[in-house]
Amino acid sequence: MSAEDRLNELGLELPATYTPVATYVPAKRVGDLLFLSGQGPRLADGSHHVGKVGAEVTVAEAYEHAKLVGLGLLAAIKAAAGDLDKVEIVKLLGMVNATPDFTQQPEVINGCSDLLVAVLGERGRHARSAVGMGSLPNGMTVEIEAIVRILP
């Protein structure tokens, strides 16, 4: 089953890709590697989910925010590589805007990781870091960047 079929089966669709608001590109290809800039949980109107996880945002809510970021990353991958069936996720760096005592960053970033495996199967399994941050741009709850290998 193709990645597009899995998305349909899950009732999900890829969002529109975004245009950066600063001096960077959404993705940079070097050889067979694709480096994706960090993305936040973007809503349809272009705004983001905001707040501190461990205070006004629950782990379950932040998990869903990370899942939303995963869809954005898949959209960026498709735009850069052309075909989700010809990529594998190598590494994620997941950052959580959290209170100082928050320790459940891995559970939050699982939202993205679980989505990538659901859509890409074994090609979605990856190495990962999940860390807490004192703040993230515009107060967003999570930001995730990725390294992807484009298969021959």
Rank of each mutant, 00 (worst) to 15 (best):
I144T: 07
G70E: 04
L73Q: 08
G139Y: 07
C112H: 04
E122D: 14
V117I: 15
S113A: 14
Q105T: 11
S129L: 13
V108H: 08
F102Y: 15
R125C: 05
S135A: 13
G82D: 05
L84W: 02
A80I: 04
M133F: 00
V119A: 03
G139P: 03
A98Y: 04
M133W: 00
T141S: 15
K86A: 15
M133A: 15
M133L: 07
P100A: 07
L71P: 00
H126V: 00
A146G: 13
E122A: 14
T99L: 02
M95I: 01
L120C: 07
L84Q: 06
T99I: 05
M133S: 14
C112R: 01
S113I: 11
P137D: 11
I109Q: 03
D101S: 14
L74N: 07
V87C: 03
I147H: 09
F102C: 00
H126G: 02
A80W: 00
A118K: 13
Q104H: 09
V117R: 11
D85W: 08
P100Y: 03
R123I: 00
G139H: 03
G94A: 06
A130S: 15
G121N: 08
I147G: 12
H126W: 05
A79H: 05
R125H: 09
C112G: 12
L93Q: 09
V96H: 09
S113H: 10
G121S: 08
G124D: 10
H126P: 02
C112M: 06
A118C: 02
Q104G: 01
A79W: 05
L92S: 12
N138S: 12
K91R: 13
T103I: 06
R128P: 00
R128K: 12
A76M: 07
L136E: 06
K86N: 12
D114C: 06
V69I: 06
I109D: 03
R123L: 01
K86D: 10
G134A: 15
G72Y: 06
K78F: 03
G124Q: 10
L68C: 03
A130R: 02
D101P: 02
A76Q: 13
R128V: 09
D101G: 11
I77F: 01
A98N: 13
A130F: 12
S135C: 02
D114R: 13
H126A: 11
A81P: 01
